[in-house]
Design a protein around this nucleic acid. Structure first.
Lengths: 329, 329
DNA sequence: GGTGGATCTGTGAACGTTCACAGCGTGTGT
DNA sequence: ACACACGCTGTGAACGTTCACAGATCCACC
């Protein structure tokens, strides 16, 4: 009934526990005979190392905590990121613990968890500008990385992200190349990298044609896309294209455009961002910008592992996006 | 630099570590004076209990593992479920470890993890019929629950789920009540509860009108919805309604219908299931069945906690769904 | 044949808790 | 006056590892 310990394995193999520990940890200096005997004993007894004991003596946690921030925008990307992170961390025998840092109580909980040494590293996801947790965690002396830049802390928290600005440029250039003259934009919240940098990329291409009149801000939701589109139409009735900083907001814009009697893409071209599941469910399907989500997650983990392994500095990285042309533009 | 231990707290408070441990764990039999002194010492030193040491001696893990199954269907529901689970488990100071069980290697990893005593319970998510992990985990003697029934193991693995069958009945009844006569269905995979039970609910209402001709199977994807709809149209050109077992498949059906020149809902009414983010991004927005996702996750956790606390049996539970009427039907 | 370096093994201590036990006052009932 | 329960406290052992150290064996080289 009781789980076998290293002593049981040692006894079964007729060898001391020190040597068992050595083969467990892949030390050299173990005779082939001992190794074989021990491996057989491990198989026979069904022994599995007790992580609590190991981590206790090693003063490590054996896990990484992924911190999600509220509010819970419907982000279909989370799943991919989580899966990828689990995979990569698993290869190093690190488990992934999930935590939420929505309110102060939860932030406190995360901090206690990390301060208590229960995690070897922190993986931030969708943390927004000014989140107090960022500095406290970094101050706690534990490796912290972010999937997507943390606005205002780009130099202190290493991150992997897609090239937001470049992706927006791709879309803007495409719209221009299709002969659109009055191109509006619905941005994300201006305290997120996706909000800020996608607008920058848009402005890069449109130059002074990207006037205030043609810019509206949303909050990533469908409803905010609808509303922003309505304001744009009222202000600039003759616009002939709109670039929404997310597919979900683009689908909101689509609804407003349809209600206003505009045809897409004939009258107004619509561009999205993310290539999420909604991109193919709209009518017409969205031309959008795809993020290399898997690679981004993978690189984020790589940075974190490097930090955990003792690197005192790592370089943030931006991965290229690709334009997915469908029927909306 | 070193983290303070219980000894440091004891020294700072001038009391033995036994008493410190007692206040840490909320024992009675601690004098008010001692309690105050210790609480101050804890605050002063910034002490946080070392979970590895605690769990080692208690022979517990202090965490629950949530097992995701492949393949990675775009399921926007995951995020809600994960968040809710984290919240509820956090209240009990249990952390949530995520694992993937897609291939044999990963299943082996999960098993080793659980067998090694690294988890106090297992939370299954979207496990499909015949997954070998289910029996092995259950056989390992660890509490296992599932969010959504595990087909073929309904009696052995307790679960919380939405009332799939009832939800499908709601939709079918609604379509009938709106005067639809030839109602088709696009089901999910028949080795999932959503696939099987939503079809059952449909059949409950339609009776022998639910002929083979009017049933097509999909695999939850957009593409499969498109294809199934095409087959249905070819076989039964005069159908006047279709119920897809997921919003994503419904959006695929919508595309096929539009391509075939059918108007929705005038010619063909379309119903979905899930009320996911795609439901409002389609044109027209989907009439669909909403699952009480948060409650389902919450109940699943409740079952698991009961099991962990020693209950030797708990009752599975199905929560009521609600019909969300939009424009597609 | 002695010295010294590999290679391999066993042992004791440590990691930071909890828990059972024993001990000690203090009051209460007989 | 005695026993006894009650409230509270300190101590030693245990949990299952790893790690540093010391020792043993073997071989090669001078």
């Amino acid at each position: 009934m009781k789980r076998p310990t290293i002593h049981d394995v040692a006894a079964a193999a007729g060898i001391s526990r020190g040597t068992v520990s050595r083969v467990l940890n892949g030390d050299r200096y173990v005779s082939p005979a001992a190794r074989i005997a021990i491996e057989r004993a491990i198989a026979e007894t069904g022994y599995v190392v007790n992580r609590n004991a190991r981590n206790l003596v090693r003063q490590r946690a054996g896990s990484v905590v992924m911190v999600l921030s509220e509010p819970p925008f419907e982000d279909p990307n989370y799943t991919t990121t989580i899966r990828t992170a689990i995979r990569r961390l698993g290869e190093r025998d690190l488990s992934l613990v999930m935590m939420i840092a929505g309110d102060d109580r939860e932030r406190e909980q995360v901090l206690r968890y990390v301060r208590g040494g229960h995690a070897d590293g922190v993986f931030l996801l969708s943390t927004h500008a000014g989140d107090p947790l960022v500095d406290t965690l970094h101050g706690a002396g534990i490796p912290v990385v972010s999937c997507g830049a943390v606005i205002g802390r780009e130099t202190v928290i290493p991150y992997a992200a897609c090239d937001e600005r470049g992706g927006a440029r791709q879309m803007a250039e495409y719209l221009v190349s299709r002969g659109r003259r009055k191109i509006a934009m619905i941005t994300g919240p201006m305290d997120t990298p996706g909000g800020i940098q996608r607008l920058e990329g848009f402005a890069d291409v449109l130059g002074r044609k990207a006037s205030k009149k043609l810019i509206e801000h949303g909050d990533w939701t469908h409803a905010s896309g609808e509303a922003a589109m309505a304001r744009l139409l009222e202000r600039v009735p003759d616009l002939d294209a709109v670039f929404a900083a997310s597919d979900v907001m683009a689908s909101g814009a689509l609804h407003t455009l349809r209600a206003a009697g505009r045809r897409v893409p004939e009258d107004v071209a619509v561009g999205g961002f993310d290539d999420s599941s909604v991109a193919i469910s709209t009518h017409p399907p969205l031309t959008t910008v795809r993020q290399p989500l898997r690679d981004v997650a993978q690189e984020t983990v790589r940075l974190l592992l490097a930090l955990i392994d003792g690197a005192d500095q790592v370089d943030s990285i931006a991965l290229p996006t690709s334009l997915i042309v469908r029927e909306s533009a």
